[in-house]
Computed example of a mutant assay.
Amino acid sequence: MGKLDEFFGSFIGGRPDTEVLTEIEDRLLVDDIPGAIALLEELKKEQNLVIAVRLILRKITQMLEKGDGQSFRALPLIKQLLPHINGIKNERYRALLLGEISIGFYLAGSELEGDFTLKTAINLALQHPDILRDILFSLIKAGLLQKAAYAMKFVKDPEKLDVVLSYLAEVFYERGDIEKALAIISHITSNFHRAVALMHLAQLEENRDRGKALQFIESAIKIAERIEDPETRFELMLKLHDLKHEIMGEPLSVGELLSAETPLEKEAAEGQDGGRV
């Protein structure tokens, strides 16, 4: 696209985006953040603006992480990025960048502005679970656990939150943060999503630690037994038992699966027995 940018740039005026992005990178290399921000006006494509803003935000975050009283310098720079972010039409991009800029505000000590931008980001991301997951993950990664919890309060739909938490648990487990992954799973309200999350952990451990994988599967089966919808329960139980026997190196026992009586079925049976004269 570089050649096309150069070609069309001569017609629409101004430099091609590739050239502007290169200069932004060069300015960031020498810590000229104000100069990099000033160049954002020249970018024509929204995707390129997103790339540039993320580069600048990353540089500001690095500056804040160094400490040495950089908050005073960083805060006005972060504020200069807001008009550019708010001008982005794509809702997904805008949500992602607002989530990232909220972290900048928090690190710079501006909690009120951080809360405001985070709330806006979450509201925009409600229809995009992957973006919601990325925002929450970034907060947790930055050590802003309380703010991640604050953000979750705005997700009113438990189903969406459970999906996001399942994603997060898997990501943290893959990164080796087992304790945090299991803590996240414990906050999943749906039996279905909690069982699925444990199943995914079992799949991650299948070729590493069969004993641990089987523990996850057994826990998932116990949780899945309490799923109320019979079809959903059966489909998930089939997957879980299939994975269990795969880990054990044995063929799936259909008889074992069909004969398994769930707690809900036991309660129903006991209720019927109690009603007999």
Results as ranks from 00 to 15, higher is better:
residue 3 K to P: 09
residue 7 F to W: 11
residue 8 F to Y: 13
residue 10 S to L: 13
residue 12 I to L: 12
residue 14 G to I: 06
residue 15 R to S: 11
residue 17 D to F: 04
residue 17 D to L: 06
residue 19 E to V: 12
residue 20 V to K: 00
residue 21 L to W: 00
residue 24 I to A: 02
residue 25 E to L: 12
residue 27 R to W: 07
residue 28 L to V: 06
residue 29 L to A: 14
residue 30 V to I: 15
residue 31 D to E: 14
residue 32 D to T: 09
residue 32 D to N: 15
residue 34 P to D: 02
residue 41 E to F: 06
residue 42 E to S: 12
residue 42 E to H: 04
residue 43 L to A: 06
residue 45 K to G: 04
residue 56 I to C: 07
residue 57 L to E: 08
residue 58 R to L: 11
residue 62 Q to M: 08
residue 68 D to W: 15
residue 69 G to R: 13
residue 70 Q to C: 09
residue 71 S to D: 10
residue 72 F to S: 14
residue 72 F to E: 15
residue 73 R to S: 05
residue 75 L to F: 10
residue 78 I to W: 00
residue 79 K to S: 10
residue 82 L to T: 10
residue 85 I to F: 04
residue 86 N to R: 14
residue 89 K to A: 13
residue 93 Y to N: 08
residue 93 Y to M: 08
residue 94 R to K: 15
residue 94 R to D: 03
residue 103 I to A: 01
residue 104 G to R: 00
residue 106 Y to Q: 05
residue 108 A to S: 08
residue 112 L to Y: 09
residue 113 E to W: 05
residue 115 D to A: 04
residue 118 L to S: 04
residue 120 T to A: 09
residue 123 N to A: 11
residue 124 L to N: 01
residue 125 A to H: 02
residue 128 H to E: 06
residue 131 I to M: 04
residue 132 L to Q: 02
residue 133 R to Y: 13
residue 133 R to E: 14
residue 135 I to V: 14
residue 136 L to R: 03
residue 142 A to M: 08
residue 143 G to I: 10
residue 147 K to N: 12
residue 151 A to D: 01
residue 153 K to G: 06
residue 155 V to S: 00
residue 156 K to S: 15
residue 157 D to G: 10
residue 157 D to V: 13
residue 158 P to T: 07
residue 160 K to V: 07
residue 161 L to W: 02
residue 162 D to S: 09
residue 164 V to E: 02
residue 167 Y to I: 01
residue 167 Y to G: 03
residue 168 L to H: 02
residue 174 E to Q: 11
residue 177 D to S: 12
residue 177 D to H: 09
residue 180 K to L: 15
residue 180 K to T: 13
residue 181 A to P: 02
residue 183 A to V: 06
residue 183 A to D: 13
residue 185 I to L: 12
residue 190 S to T: 04
residue 190 S to Y: 01
residue 190 S to H: 03
residue 192 F to A: 07
residue 194 R to E: 10
residue 194 R to H: 08
residue 194 R to M: 12
residue 196 V to R: 10
residue 198 L to K: 06
residue 199 M to P: 03
residue 202 A to T: 05
residue 203 Q to N: 14
residue 204 L to V: 14
residue 206 E to Y: 03
residue 206 E to P: 00
residue 206 E to C: 06
residue 210 R to F: 07
residue 213 A to P: 01
residue 216 F to V: 06
residue 216 F to M: 12
residue 216 F to I: 09
residue 217 I to M: 05
residue 217 I to N: 01
residue 218 E to F: 11
residue 220 A to D: 04
residue 221 I to K: 02
residue 225 E to H: 09
residue 226 R to Y: 03
residue 228 E to A: 13
residue 230 P to Q: 11
residue 231 E to D: 14
residue 240 L to H: 00
residue 240 L to T: 02
residue 243 L to D: 01
residue 244 K to E: 09
residue 244 K to Q: 13
residue 244 K to G: 06
residue 247 I to R: 03
residue 252 L to G: 08
residue 256 E to C: 07
residue 257 L to S: 04
residue 258 L to K: 11
residue 266 K to H: 11
residue 267 E to C: 08
residue 267 E to A: 15
residue 268 A to T: 13
residue 270 E to Q: 12
residue 272 Q to L: 15
residue 272 Q to F: 14
residue 273 D to P: 03
